[in-house]
Design a binder for these strands. Structure first.
Lengths: 185, 185
DNA sequence: TTAACTTATATCCTTATTGACATAAAGAAA
DNA sequence: TTTCTTTATGTCAATAAGGATATAAGTTAA
């Protein structure tokens, strides 16, 4: 089972959405965790509808606007997400262009490398701030809810983001320090 | 410029290698950072040779063994890596099946979810131990070398791995704790 | 008033990536 | 003695993913 499919189903497990909604959530809300194009979303929705994992709930028509096709998850779809979520395994590779660039830092003039790292650090600082705000926002809504509430899972994931961005920023700082001294350690 | 190409060139910038060597390094040494198949390595090497980024250094023939085709990076290839390394930008998405599963944890029985997380945690603990050993091993060879030595860059990257795996393990532990209490926070 | 942006759908083409297969032979283990 | 693993090269077919383009119309800003 492909991974975009899992992502779409994971979102639809929470609420009915249109293809456009899904695209927006994946590119903006879930932030950096995933990016998709409409070329992936619409055909995949159609395929899943054929297979009975999602169903067209209805078509919303606002005056002079394209019709919104709202999809909801079916019982079969729900079962499929749960099955996938509990089954073991998952990608064991981590792919990051910037790490590969760091792997080449020995080739490059330290000053130029430092510039690049500073830029990367800035980007991750921005993400860190955004995630921290998101955690605060979501946590304030959390009172009285259980681990069976989607909000709990959302916070867990964004919290991972906070830690990850913090790690990235710290690592950038240490790399800059080492390169400035022109000495490892 | 595609990303496998960058990975191959980054390795060849350090030393001449055969397609098989590259595959081994990417799947074993660089560990989880990248995985490739021979179907990606051999055609890409051929393409890069055509474009003059790498050159066939020679063919090693050991008795009764397939011939080893050793490739070395050319000056044009070296320039290309340096250009790519210093140019800004890089993937701004982070993709992880397990995080997506965590996003679905609200759907699943906490006990079953905890099992899955424990397994994930174990895998990351193993990687953490491997990276820590690798950092120690590489650091012991570091004395007296400068930031212009490939070893410096290798350590930086593996150090990122150590921090990353540590973060992952801690995050798993907190998720387990929350799910055990059946209460967020 | 013209241009840019947002809402919404969807397809087309190209490139990346994955998995399975094919060949060939040495060395180790059952 | 047969089977499995490692070294070594590659190809083929299928799927995943990315970028560009198309249509259509309302809102917003220069």
């Amino acid at each position: 089972m492909s991974s975009i499919r899992q992502a779409l189903l994971s979102l639809l497990a929470r609420e009915p959405l249109s293809g456009y909604d899904i695209k927006q959530r994946m590119n903006n809300r879930l932030g950096p965790f995933w990016k998709v194009g409409s070329n992936q979303v619409y055909p995949e929705l159609a395929r899943m509808e054929e297979e009975g994992l999602v169903a067209l709930q209805g078509i919303e028509q606002h005056d002079y606007r394209p019709a919104r096709k709202l999809y909801e998850i079916t019982e079969a779809g729900r079962e499929a997400v749960i099955r996938w979520t509990t089954e073991p395994g998952g990608a064991d590779q981590y792919r990051d262009d910037f790490l590969l660039k760091a792997y080449n830092s020995w080739l490059v003039d330290p000053e130029r490398m430092i510039e690049g790292i500073r830029e990367m650090k800035k980007q991750h600082e921005e993400k860190l701030a955004a995630y921290e705000a998101k955690v605060a926002e979501l946590t304030s809504q959390l009172a009285g809810r259980s681990v069976a509430d989607p909000l709990f899972s959302s916070i867990s994931v964004v919290e991972f983001g906070v830690r990850y961005e913090r790690l990235y920023v710290e690592w950038c700082e240490e790399l800059i320090a080492k390169l400035s001294r022109r000495e490892p350690e």
